[in-house]
């Protein structure tokens, strides 16, 4: 197996151009190392860990710029993430063990494009954008367009994720990330639900409701019908019930060793309700009537 440690993004990109499908990019390694052990070794390994400045977390253009090599624990430790992007912070905090959080990178979690990837539904809800770089140039694209399927992204075999831009959510928003698992952070989520909303001026209705779903479709998804159903309305028990069912209908979960598709649908329903109710309560100070 060939091995490279490019020192710059352009060096990395030319290696990917050269080796194409044979190349596997490795950053933290928490997924790639398991593949090396249990699947066939890749033809070559391109270790991007030593490219400088790709792990920065800083305020930029009305949001936060996150370098793809930032570890999950660095996100947790970052003041700006904790204070301004609590949704992402909650996902990072429930992301596996501390040992893994010290190693795994957000870029790795994104590029793995597992539907259950812990940070993905939150990034969709935060309407973050990927900075995607190829040897012939860079572009940004919303994560909604970035994920193509399980393990598939718009990077293909020749692109690199070089940055993540997360706009600051609207002032006064409330957001929750709910992960469904038996052992909490330690498991891969059976379902992950991210909910974010604001309240209108007199706190009588929810505005700009966003719902993101993980592990229940080929990619992480938003639940636009549910968002439209709830936005602009006061949340009562009937609407909450309707929203849960709507959200479940927007998911298309599969059955695997972790749970059945049917059960995942029930959990999407339950956690959407729970997330909306928590937002309602935090934003209005009222219980759902």
């Amino acid at each position: 197996m060939d091995y490279f440690e490019p020192k710059t993004v352009s060096e990395a990109l030319s290696l990917l151009d050269q080796h194409g499908e044979q190349a596997e990019v490795i950053a933290g390694g928490t997924d790639v190392m398991v593949d090396i052990k249990y699947k066939d070794e890749p033809g070559c390994l391109v270790n991007i860990k030593r490219i400088p400045d790709l792990n920065a977390i800083r305020e930029s253009n009305g949001g936060v710029h996150i370098g793809p090599l930032a570890t999950i624990h660095e996100l947790e430790e970052s003041d700006i993430v904790r204070e301004r992007l609590p949704l992402l912070w909650q996902a990072a905090h429930q992301f596996a063990s501390l040992q893994i959080r010290n190693t795994a990178t957000i870029g790795g979690n994104i590029c793995r494009a597992s539907p259950s990837g812990e940070t993905l539904a939150p990034l969709l809800v935060l309407e973050a954008e990927a900075e995607v770089t190829f040897s012939d140039g860079a572009r940004t694209e919303p994560f909604g367009a970035f994920f193509k399927g399980p393990g598939q992204t718009s990077l293909g075999s020749r692109g690199l994720l070089t940055g993540i831009s997360v706009p600051f959510p609207a002032a006064g928003n409330h957001a929750v990330y709910l992960k469904h698992a038996v052992r909490g952070p330690m498991d891969i989520a059976m379902v992950g639900v991210a909910v974010m909303a604001t309240a209108n001026a007199d706190k009588s209705a929810l505005d700009d409701v966003r719902v993101g779903l993980g592990a229940v479709a080929p990619t992480p998804i938003r639940a636009p019908k549910t968002e439209a159903l709830v936005s602009g309305k006061a949340l009562d028990a009937a609407l909450l019930k309707e929203a849960g069912a709507c959200s479940a209908s927007e998911s298309s979960p599969i059955t695997d060793q972790r749970s059945s598709g049917e059960y995942r649908g029930w959990i999407v329903d339950a956690l959407t309700r729970r997330g909306l109710a928590q937002c309602w309560q935090a934003l209005t100070g009222k219980e759902v009537a």
Binding site: Y38, V182, R183, Q257
Partner: peptide, 16 residues
């Protein structure tokens, strides 16, 4: 066997 590794073979951890 669908869950041979510890990724999906869930044993109790201290937090549960």
């Amino acid at each position: 066997t669908l869950n041979p590794t510890f990724v999906d073979y869930l044993m109790p951890t201290i937090n549960m």
